[in-house]
């Protein structure tokens, strides 16, 4: 009996050796067939069970089952190992030069002036302003006279207009939208508008016949010049950064009294003086003031009861300062290299 069992042990060891030696799934399959196949050594060994003495059968059966389990396990673990090797070989072959450049997708964006106007709009919306729009073609009467600028007034020199006929013109400022809002609403009102404006300026590095403006105003009982300062300084810090300083100096607009100009500490040099701020440390960015009583009167609002502050600014200049753009023409040239940078 001992030799019978020794014989099984030898089959087991031999199967394990052959399985371990198989280098491909095909070779391993041959090993499987040689031992576990219909004519395989293990299968044949099971046939001996029929000829064994009845008292031997349980032990022999046990030994045969153990043999079959051991061979199967050896085959399985070798199969795993081969599969692992194959996977690793495949992954190794799939190695990429990860330093190759990426393949760009088209990334679109809104124009820098659009984003600037919307950003300014959002700041004022947070202060309770309604954001509105108006037409680009206006009547001379609304664009000028309603803002206390009579015909032939010297202030019109700075706002030389494109006329269309019938007194219609391309609006020279978005301040004219204020007039329409004043007509349509009763105080309290806070409104802001932005968009294209037009002046008869020849094109150069800082002038374009078409440009953009933002204008806003607030009318209510008890609106003060100090409110104007507080609101505009909040805006300047939100837009240009929390360390921005501001300076208000007297100025003149026919539709405000008192009138002021707001300058911010130069964003390029921080106020020490540079070429951009003409060594003054200050950049004028915005005109403002308290609405002239006549402007309110013409809208049917009693200037003794209500006061209003108003402000207006070009959009190109703050955008140029923020993005360090040195030529206004770039905004309208639409060179894709520019549009994608800012």
């Amino acid at each position: 009996m001992r030799e019978d069992f020794g014989d099984l042990h030898e089959i087991e060891q031999q199967a394990e050796r052959e399985a371990a030696a198989a280098q491909t799934p095909e070779a391993l399959e041959e090993v499987r067939v040689r031992y576990l196949g219909r004519q395989g050594l293990v299968t044949q060994a099971f046939r001996r069970l029929g000829t064994a003495a009845p008292e031997e059968r349980p032990r022999l059966g046990q030994a045969l089952n153990a043999l079959r389990a051991a061979v199967s396990s050896a085959l399985a673990s070798r199969a795993d190992a081969l599969a692992r090797d194959a996977r690793e070989a495949r992954l190794a072959a799939e190695r990429l030069d990860v330093t190759l450049p990426g393949r760009p997708l088209a990334v679109g964006r809104r124009h820098v002036l659009t984003r600037t106007m919307e950003e300014i709009g959002e700041i004022f919306r947070g202060l309770g302003f309604q954001i509105v729009e108006g037409p680009e073609v206006e009547h001379d009467h609304d664009n000028f006279e309603r803002l206390n600028i009579p015909p032939y007034h010297p202030a019109r020199d700075a706002q030389d207009s494109f006329y269309l006929g019938g007194g219609w013109l391309l609006r020279t400022h978005t301040t004219v939208v204020d007039v329409h809002v004043l007509d349509a609403h009763r105080p309290p009102v806070r409104a802001l508008s932005y968009g294209h404006c037009y002046r008869r300026d020849p094109v150069d590095a800082s002038h374009s016949p078409m440009f953009h403006q933002v204008d806003g105003f607030m009318v209510d009982e008890g609106v003060r010049f100090s409110d104007l300062k507080g609101v505009l300084i909040h805006f300047a810090r939100m837009f240009f950064g929390p360390d921005t300083r501001t300076r208000f100096v007297p100025s003149y607009f026919p539709f405000t009294e008192p009138s002021a100009e707001m300058a911010i500490s130069c964003v390029i040099c921080g106020g020490r003086g540079c070429a951009v701020c003409k060594r003054s440390g200050w950049l004028e960015i915005l005109g403002c003031g308290m609405f002239h009583p006549r402007v309110l009167e013409m809208a049917g609002i009693d200037p003794q009861r209500y006061t209003a502050f108003a402000f207006g600014m070009g959009v190109e200049r703050p955008a140029m300062l923020k993005h360090r753009i040195d030529d206004i023409r770039l905004f309208f040239e639409n060179d894709l290299r520019f549009l994608r940078q800012v």
Partner: peptide
């Protein structure tokens, strides 16, 4: 003008709306 203080508007607030 620099001696005028900074204040924020008093009175009724108005809703901030975008058209």
């Amino acid at each position: 003008y620099d001696r005028v203080p900074l204040t924020l508007p008093r009175g009724d607030t108005t809703p901030g709306i975008t058209s």
